[in-house]
Amino acid sequence: MEVTSIRQFHQLMESNKLIMLYEGEFTQEITKGVLAMTERNLDKDSVEAGIKKKIYNVMVEVLQNICKHQASSSDDAKTAVFMIGEDEEHFFVISGNTIQQNKIAAIEEKLNLINSKDKDGLKLLFRDLRLSATISEAGGAGLGFVDIARKSESKLKFQFDLIKDDLYYFIFLSTISKHTSENN
């Protein structure tokens, strides 16, 4: 599945089963609420514990990324979208938020680096980033993105769409297979 524009966001929601959608301001309280609600929904659908844990893991990193991003953004960048959907084979965790052009290059570089790595490469990257990150930048060192790639075991999908001037819309999608990998 490709998400390359805000319009496709809506198509995606229409064509797949939506488990939860939240739009608005993000805080730690909202994060906890979204997590609790999703856990309940996944329990209701009897999702396997290992898969549920992976979804939870990816959600926390995505939600806390948005919280930190919003905290450091000005006025018109305050609302974001977070959704979880599924099709026959996968769960999708998708976020969308506005972003200033000057922040794009660094994020793009991190995500492309992550997508160039295999499982062992990601393990090493995570180890090195965690060792070198100072606590204050632990949130901005890209550890969260690496963790999402490791736990979801799939390539990260992302897109930056121009809104106006130097303001872009950042769409981020991670995919979690409904079938546990047998190769561990």
Binding site: V60, E61, R130, L131, I135, L143
Partner: peptide
């Protein structure tokens, strides 16, 4: 039971 990446850095510390 679960820890996020920021906590994982502190656990290493």
């Amino acid at each position: 039971e679960y820890f996020n990446t920021a906590s994982s850095k502190i656990i290493l510390d």
